[in-house]
């Protein structure tokens, strides 16, 4: 019970991820009524949980290398600091990423506890933040050109295009939810893996390890976020921020989900290693920023229209300010937890 209380801050982060980031996956589909909200919410919930439990290990290991938080109260504060940062940045309508918040908060813990921050790991993570929207834009340009060629050159009836798009949005949304779960569960539950005492869990023929149980809880928290709050966000995503056609939306979700996937998949990493090719680091990246990258990719593919340089600038600022704010909040909150609430935040 005590453990559950301490991981509540992680569950809050999961809820906020479900409420905000999951909306990117089905925003246009739901707001244009191509897919019903209930269908979208069920698909996201199922696949986020599968992604988290099956594929969440890789990115979690990377965050663990950045800072191995070794007490539950410490992990609670770190996740809480990340959650507060996300809340504050969102209230001021600044683009924010859970990934950047948690990394800042972990570094805050490293500084407070006197552990060294591995700068090679940090530079790998920060490099990925910059690279992921660019990669998403590249994917979007490629997918856009393929879709453009197919629709403009083949005799596909408008009604069939509509039908394929509808099913495509569901399939890609499911893939996106899996990738989101696999890539971002580290942000939500990663800091608790060293100290969690939940133990293993047996569901029918499946036995989940301690970490997987933790990820299952995180996945459920994301699902709760989807069901309780994401409908409103989906409507906003679909109607105002990214007012794009369903086909373009399909491309955006596919591109950003592929980015989340390549930065989370251990399977892909081992295939690339076997082939002697360079691999993608397993790092949690921001789904929203990958979406922005994909939207801009489509803009570029259309000849440079719709490229919002102001938004790009804001994202760039977010790469610096989000971790700094999270670091500061984390450091102060750890101080209070240690000295006022008398809980040991590091060993």
């Amino acid at each position: 019970m005590g453990a559950l209380l301490f991981i509540s801050s992680g569950l809050f982060l999961g809820w906020s991820l479900g409420a905000n980031d999951a909306a990117n996956l089905f925003g246009t589909a739901v707001s244009t009524k191509m897919v019903k909200f209930s269908t979208a919410a069920i698909i996201i919930s199922v696949f986020v949980i599968i992604g988290a439990v099956v594929g969440g290990a890789g990115t979690t290991e990377t965050l663990g290398t950045l800072g191995a938080i070794n007490t539950l109260p410490g992990a609670f504060v770190v996740a809480l600091a990340a959650g507060i940062t996300v809340y504050l940045m969102t209230s001021y309508e600044l683009p924010v990423s859970t990934t950047q918040s948690i990394v800042g908060a972990i570094i805050g813990w490293n500084i407070f506890s006197g552990y060294d921050t591995q700068f090679d790991v940090l530079s790998k993570i920060v490099g990925t933040w910059v690279f992921s929207p660019i990669l998403s834009a590249i994917f979007a340009i490629i997918f856009f050109k393929i879709a453009q060629y197919l629709i403009n050159n083949f005799k596909i009836h408008l009604i069939k295009v509509d039908m394929y798009t509808r099913f495509g949005l569901i399939l890609v949304g499911a893939f996106g939810a899996y990738s989101l779960g696999a890539n971002n569960i580290a942000n939500v539950m990663g800091v608790f893996t060293q100290t969690s005492t939940l133990g293993s869990l047996k569901i029918g023929p499946l036995t989940l390890s301690n970490t997987q149980t933790l990820f299952l809880l995180g996945g459920i928290a994301i699902s709760v976020g989807v069901f309780t709050y994401s409908k409103r966000v989906m409507t906003t995503v679909g109607r105002s921020i990214f007012k794009i056609s369903p086909v373009a939306s399909l491309i955006v979700v596919l591109s950003s989900s592929t980015v989340l996937f390549v930065f989370a998949s251990e399977g892909l990493q081992s295939i690339l290693l076997t082939l002697g090719l360079p691999t993608f680091p397993l790092v949690p990246v921001s789904g929203s920023q990958a979406v922005v990258g994909a939207v801009m990719g489509i803009g570029l593919a259309k000849g440079g229209r719709n490229v919002n340089y102001k938004l790009l600038g804001k994202i760039g600022m977010g790469w610096i300010f989000t971790p700094l704010l999270a670091l500061l909040i984390s450091y102060i909150a750890l101080f209070f937890m240690q000295n006022v609430f008398m809980h040991q935040v590091y060993l």
Binding site: T32, K33, M34, L158, I159, D162, S245, P246
Partner: peptide, 11 residues
């Protein structure tokens, strides 16, 4: 049946 949500008006 909510078909062609985007192009419905034009069609």
């Amino acid at each position: 049946y909510m078909l062609l949500p985007e192009a419905r008006g034009d069609v």
